[in-house]
Design a binder for these strands. Structure first.
Lengths: 334, 334
DNA sequence: CTGAAAGCGCTTACAG
DNA sequence: CTGAAAGCGCTTACAG
């Protein structure tokens, strides 16, 4: 029913081996032969069937993106971070290669065993994963012997086929806290959602270091729920306890704090200092605009994807950890 | 190398036909037979290879999502609408079936012919498409004879294998404009980005109707670029020309208008009335909160996906057009 | 460069 | 329920 390599071979007057080789970019053929094959394919509207190719080469040209379990159900709508990562992945995929992306995600109701099923049944060639996972799952990924690029993962174990990409979260937390101190704020709280995560711990540690260097008091507040809603509740608490500044470990929390503080009649950026972490777009869309730490999310996703593609093409080996620098972006809230 | 249906058959002491049928959910087997097959599969860690299945059944269990060309490069980061749609698609896919999503997108540098290539080479079973496309492309999609669900598409042509899902854009524009009039605003501008799109035209038409009913003057402003940035520039213009209200055909534009108006010292919600369209999350995160038209984006995406799955399962036929209702959400800006 | 052959892992009649 | 067979569309040696 569909047009196959045999039809093209017949039309071009060559063997199917030749057609296959021309489309696969293997072996060197004369320009005429190549042209004849391409013309025949064009004429018949031939498109190679990737499922058939996959079956024989054992390469699916499919990449899996695993989103972490602490993301909520409306993953994309509520978490701009993942949007930026996805945009960067798609941009690199389109530029560099014929790979497609499959999204595996605990927040979308998938258990780890369902994710394993899909990795196996779709036979993905490589994995991009964000955040932390338990040892069992990581060992499973290692056992598949496919390249795995971990974004924002701080696990200490060594896995042969993994590479890591992180941001300099410690410096980020330090810069933010120092800025609040430099601006004259004295009672500076830290607001976070995932106290337990190693990544947040880095930001928190450096907040503590900066505060202690100045002889002030550290105060760490932790909540669950959506980042914005948590921010609202942080603000009520900070206000009631006369804090004059807050460092939020993610921008969406800071946006929540800002929203509520304004309702409470607080002049944010003057009476109250506020700094976030991420540098997502909404920080420039609120009023006053949010001071934050830029963690180069797009670059992180793009680099991870390039690293994965290089590894798939055997251009580079795995096992490295890349740490991207971080910058303080001074706007209006501190 | 990998565990196949043959290995499972051997282990379970049955024929490979039986294994295949059990996994495919075909034919009725005794409970013991089924259990034996499942146990053997479990023991060996067997997972069916979807590429092989696809080759023989001619079903890939892959769905393509086509995003429209007027979206910019940072599709997901800048356009919350698409995030909500994607969240809803993934939610339905996980609940109902073993399908995976592939994203095809002009904004991600893909031309229509590249999208065609991917539809063919991946052999997608069905298509979800958002927005408007030229006749050639739609005819191509029809020629593939796979179900196509169009979201927010207003083309008049009839395509056999298409179903359509829209919102009641006319009522939406009318409700928004009436609300501004009812609140006493008199010089009410309309701010839009895609004057030419049939969807925006619906919202604009009903704005015009409402304004004319009241004997006021219609003023339609059109700009290009990112919605938020366009909003900033709309605000400058509206302010300079003493408008006292604006209906923006999408929330992100309204957020831009709001941001700039506040900078200009305008008390939005009092001196200046502002209404958006979409009801995305950011409308409740800005200050004052945005009055808008809720177009049930999540429900739209979920319904589209369910319609597609039903059609793939032959549970329902195509050719319908569903129009979802719309509600005015009164918040603080009007 | 060709051409016949084997095989990737599955499903699908079909005769028993 | 079984079991042998054909075939989906491709790639990959291999002898010429």
């Amino acid at each position: 029913m569909s047009i196959t390599v045999i039809d093209v071979a017949k039309e071009a007057g060559v063997s199917r081996t030749t057609v296959s080789n021309v489309f696969g970019g293997r072996a060197k053929y004369s320009d005429e032969t190549r042209a004849a094959v391409l013309a025949a394919a064009e004429k018949l509207g031939y498109k190679p069937n990737l499922a058939a190719r996959s079956l024989i080469t054992n390469q699916s040209r499919l990449i899996g993106l695993i989103l972490p379990s602490y993301v909520d159900t409306n993953t994309l709508a509520n978490n701009p971070f993942y949007n930026i990562i996805m945009d960067s992945i798609y941009a690199v995929l389109r530029d560099e290669a014929y790979y497609d992306l499959l999204i595996f995600s605990v927040p979308y109701q998938e258990t780890q065993s369902q994710i394993r099923d899909r990795i196996e049944t779709r036979n993905v060639d490589g994995i991009l994963a964000i955040g932390e996972y338990d040892q069992n799952f990581l060992r499973y990924l290692e056992s598949k012997a496919i390249p795995v690029i971990m974004i924002d993962n701080y696990s200490q174990e060594k896995y042969e086929n993994f590479s890591y990409i992180n941001s300099d979260d410690e410096t980020g937390g330090y810069l933010a806290t120092r800025q609040l101190i430099a601006n004259g704020y004295k009672k500076i709280g830290l607001c976070t959602l995932d106290l337990a995560s190693p990544l947040m711990q880095k930001r928190i540690d450096s907040y503590q270091n900066a505060i202690q260097e100045s002889g002030y008091q550290t105060c760490i507040f932790d909540r669950t729920g959506s980042p914005f809603d948590a921010g609202i509740r942080f603000a009520d608490w900070l206000f009631a306890h006369h804090f004059d500044a807050a460092f939020c470990t993610e921008d969406m929390v800071a946006v929540g704090v800002l929203h509520r503080m304004l309702r409470l009649g607080v002049s944010v950026g003057k009476e109250f200092g506020l700094i976030g972490f991420d540098n997502i777009l909404i920080g420039t869309q609120v009023n006053p605009e949010l001071t934050t730490v830029d963690q180069r999310i797009y670059e992180k996703g793009a680099t991870a994807t390039k690293t994965l593609l290089d590894s798939l093409k055997k251009k580079s080996s795995l096992g490295s950890r890349l740490i991207l620098p971080v910058d303080l972006v001074s706007r209006e809230t501190a």
